[in-house]
Design a protein around this nucleic acid. Structure first.
Lengths: 389, 389
DNA sequence: TAATTAGTTTGTTCATACAACCAACTCACA
DNA sequence: TGTGAGTTGGTTGTATGAACAAACTAATTA
């Protein structure tokens, strides 16, 4: 859980970070317990703790219960949630989702703004207003600490490298907001963020390897390998929507996965059958719920294809769990059992558990919160558990 | 490149390992240069060096050249290759490949034994004889230091978990040889080992992420992620041969990749056309070289399918380079350009360089050597460069 | 009051840093 | 060709400061 330590100074910093991480994960906690958990002498823990206290990132929560067999009451230590806040955005197709979080990852507030049809430069103004609002209403000690953006596309070195659903207009989001607000700004792919959410917020920290299959307008996978997010060499790992699945083997034309089982593909398939242009997710859901024959046919194909994708994800990544982030399945939860069923029949290995992510947007936003909070606290290589806050 | 350091003792050990790794990678090297490269004071380096010298793992190579601007001659330090040796096996279908290496990874000797049709218990005897031979002829200081086995199947926790081409007869190879020879024994999947070979022996240490596609009787991928081998949760990551590629989307029966483009599949496809049972790789190669029409047709299909597999590997893992380990393409090198060509036309992203592994068996054996040598030297989390030895 | 537990204080330890040193070399210049 | 100034590699003795250990105080239970 650490970087390269060479000398005593670095060892010192490292141990301070380890204590902060321990406070984060176990709060409220007494120094004796930190000492036991980290195998550090309790005098060492006390000394290092004073550094953290001076920085203001931790606070004392009053005294806890003494042991039943007597003894002094412990001083309980926790992360100082009045230290500051982060603000996290998700660039949805129709809505800009906004979440403000305290430094422990607790949700301060959530809202969304209608952005359908807006240009990015117009959305940037909405973001600016949201940040100003947040700062005006804020009473924390250091105010805004960091910003994260969930991108429905690929990201490399904090830059958007591919954005199929939004024209980036050459705007460098990280640079714009870093210079404007003088805080770290993080851009990350949306599927990756929901994988991070599962790892950090939802008991996924017990898993070494996990994959989130994100089915929105396109299809992508967020990959956690040895507890770390995996990006690939150009931030394009997990772009499974681009995979070819109907091959040339039998003389067929080649098709990408995305072409026939993304949410967009499903909507347009049904739209073609119904000869209707104006279909959206909601109308597909309604037709299916009314047992419309065409909708059922199209979604049965969807079920089989998603099962196949899941099976291929297993063969490629062998994760402990596969998570699905899909607003469509979220609204039609009856699709999940047949997907799981198909997948289990298909796989030759032991099947991997498939789990739905309950609230796709909240997950993405909290994933962003987890990453930017780590940057703010300088705990980038530590396991942090945001779940119990 | 390191583990978790908590106190002075661990820091000390860690720095000793860092120096040993530096000697390994830069040998022959003087202490001043180690000091500069690791940002450790030269007196510290000297003190730690004496520990290594006492252990006998390093040796002084006499004096080097003094700088042109004067100054004392450096004492050149290198790994002591007389320290001992490792022995590394590859369970091929027809041959057991055997390589003996010195502690720097240098090849001491290579041989192969015919094992076609033999049971594993009989092969174990051959292995025993090879080890006895090696020890008899050896004049090193500590003799046998470690053993590695390349497995054409999946491995988890040093156990073979799936072995399509050989009956394991319930034999626990690691346990058998560890108790018999009292040295560490390592089992690893063959595709993974050739990926390790590229990383450690062949300048691949510059790459963060790489995938080796191994086309033998089956098809598998060895995956290097952030410079580390990735196994997945059950050692089944990269089992891309099991992937479904002809989906149910168009009402087709599902087919696995392996079913139509492994070497075995190619041989049996051509065998069916020729109505001949006795085909093997060599006869396929000969027919193709004679421009036999059926062979050309079958191998053109192979070319297209391998290109598709490579494209999917790129979408899944986004590696810096994709390596191919395939005895068939090794013998028919003219297949590679059209594979690369097809792949480049197919991919939407920037194409990734495709490179052949020159000698598939040597690569696998040296990959095993790299991993077991790390264990022997207690340098498991360090980057080691075996190439220049 | 004895036992127990949390946290503090004081002094020790020892791995690394530092600085001054020695050793051994090159090269310019006489 | 001999000498010494300058340079580089490696050693030695000392200082620093991080974690540690043990003895302490504080505050609790029974």
């Amino acid at each position: 859980m650490a970087g390269d330590v060479k000398n005593r100074e670095e060892l010192h910093e490292q141990n301070i970070r380890a204590i902060l991480a321990e406070v984060f994960n176990q709060q409220p906690i007494a120094r004796v317990d930190i000492s036991k958990n980290l195998s550090l002498n309790k005098s060492t823990v006390s000394a290092l703790y004073f550094d953290l206290k001076e920085r203001g990132v931790v606070s004392e929560l009053g005294e806890g219960q003494a042991s039943t067999s007597g003894g002094r009451k412990p001083v309980l230590i926790a992360i100082n949630n009045r230290y500051g806040f982060t603000i996290n955005f998700d660039f949805g197709y129709r809505h800009l989702h906004i979440m403000r979080n305290d430094i422990s990852g607790g949700i301060l507030d959530y809202s969304q703004a209608d952005v359908e049809g807006l240009r990015l430069s117009e959305i940037v103004q909405i973001i600016d207003e949201a940040i100003h609002d947040a700062r005006r209403n804020d009473r924390s000690e250091h105010g805004l600490l960091g910003i994260s953006f969930a991108i429905h596309g690929t990201v490399h070195n904090n830059q958007v490298t591919y954005s199929p659903f939004m024209d980036m207009e050459g705007i460098d989001l990280a640079n714009v907001f870093e210079t404007k607000y003088q805080v770290p700004v993080l851009l990350e792919n949306e599927a990756n963020l929901s994988a991070v959410y599962e790892r950090d917020f939802n008991d996924g920290h017990a898993l070494n390897n996990a994959v989130t299959v994100s089915i929105h307008r396109g299809i992508g996978a967020g990959i956690i390998v040895n507890k770390e997010l995996y990006h690939g060499d150009h931030g394009e790992a997990g772009e499974i929507g681009r995979s070819v699945i109907i091959g040339s083997a039998l003389g067929q034309t080649m098709m990408k996965v995305e072409d026939f089982c993304s949410e967009e593909a499903i909507i347009s398939q049904l739209g073609q059958i119904k000869a209707s242009q104006a279909l959206d997710r909601q109308s597909v859901v309604e037709l299916y719920n009314q047992h419309d024959e065409d909708a059922v046919t199209v979604l049965n194909g969807f079920i089989r294809n998603i099962a196949m994708i899941i099976s291929n994800v297993q063969n490629n990544y062998d994760p402990a769990t596969i998570f699905i982030n899909s607003p469509l399945i979220e609204e039609l939860p009856s699709l999940l059992p047949p997907i799981t069923d198909h997948y289990q029949k298909m796989t030759k290995s032991n099947p991997v558990p498939i789990k739905m992510i309950a609230d796709s947007h909240a997950a993405t936003l909290q994933g962003g919160c987890a990453l930017i909070t780590r940057q703010v606290l300088d705990l980038e290589n530590f396991e942090l558990n945001f779940s119990a806050k």
